[in-house]
Computed example of a mutant assay.
Amino acid sequence: MSISARPASHHDLPRIAQLFDQYRQFYEQAPDAELARRFIGERFHKGESKLLAALDEAGEIVGFCQLYPSFCSVEAAPIYVLYDLFVDPAARKGGAGRALLLAAEALARQDGKARMDLTTARTNHAAQALYESLGWVRDEVFLAYSRRLAS
């Protein structure tokens, strides 16, 4: 299977929103197609994230990646946080994840980012193997914390 990756366009948003809804379900969130459509659309139209689409040889979108611009204070440099990456289960093991990661790296270099950061579930061994095969290094020094805020 021949896979390519490119920046997403406005016309790609409906399909990417479908995949985003599946991505959220992978992380044990309830299905919500409208929430997925709204969230992806807002990030895209406000320029708050960069979206990449993976396409199969027929030109169908089979995966996506979303990058958020941020900064590393220690390095005093801009970075991307690769927050979302998802490939349709039917298209997995065909190179879409790899194509998205390589396209994200190329975009980060083009945009002058010092590095990219990501987190993944401890149980997502397939993704971890892919990241490490592309030179991503697991952080063994820092622990990640989060705090849920009341709405």
Rank of each mutant, 00 (worst) to 15 (best):
S146K: 10
F142E: 13
Q29Y: 09
N124Q: 02
P89S: 06
I40W: 06
G97V: 00
R147N: 09
S73F: 07
Q18I: 12
Q66W: 03
A127F: 02
S4R: 09
R138Q: 15
Q128K: 03
F20R: 05
A114H: 14
E42T: 12
H10L: 14
S133K: 05
S9E: 14
A8C: 08
A77I: 03
R43V: 13
C65A: 09
K50G: 04
R115F: 14
F20D: 11
E48H: 08
K50E: 15
I79H: 06
R24E: 13
I40K: 04
R92N: 06
L100I: 04
H11P: 06
C72E: 05
A77Q: 08
F20Y: 13
F64C: 02
E60I: 01
R138L: 14
A91M: 02
G112K: 09
P7R: 13
R98N: 03
L13W: 12
Y131D: 03
A77H: 04
R147L: 15
L149Y: 09
E28W: 15
R138C: 14
A121S: 11
D139R: 01
K50W: 14
G135D: 10
R138M: 15
Y145F: 13
Q25L: 05
Y80S: 07
E48M: 12
S146C: 10
S73M: 08
H10A: 13
D12A: 07
A53D: 04
Q128N: 06
I61G: 00
A103T: 00
Y27G: 04
P89M: 06
L52V: 10
A17C: 13
L51T: 03
H125F: 10
E140W: 08
M1G: 11
D84Q: 07
P78W: 09
E28F: 15
V62W: 02
L107C: 07
R15W: 15
E105P: 03
D111S: 04
A90L: 08
T120F: 04
A33F: 04
K46I: 07
A103E: 05
T119K: 08
H10K: 12
A106S: 10
A144R: 08
R24W: 14
R98W: 06
A144Y: 11
R6K: 10
M1L: 06
A114M: 07
S2F: 02
D84S: 11
P31V: 06
D117P: 00
Q22Y: 09
T120D: 07
P7M: 10
G94V: 00
R15A: 12
A33G: 01
L51P: 02
D56K: 00
R15L: 14
E60W: 01
V62I: 08
R15P: 14
P89F: 10
A33S: 13
D32I: 01
V81N: 13
L130Y: 06
E132I: 02
N124G: 01
R148F: 15
V141L: 15
K113L: 12
Y27W: 05
F26N: 09
R43N: 11
V62P: 00
P69Q: 00
Y27K: 05
Q110D: 15
S9Q: 11
R98E: 13
A127D: 03
F39M: 13
L149I: 11
Q128F: 05
A53R: 03
G47M: 05
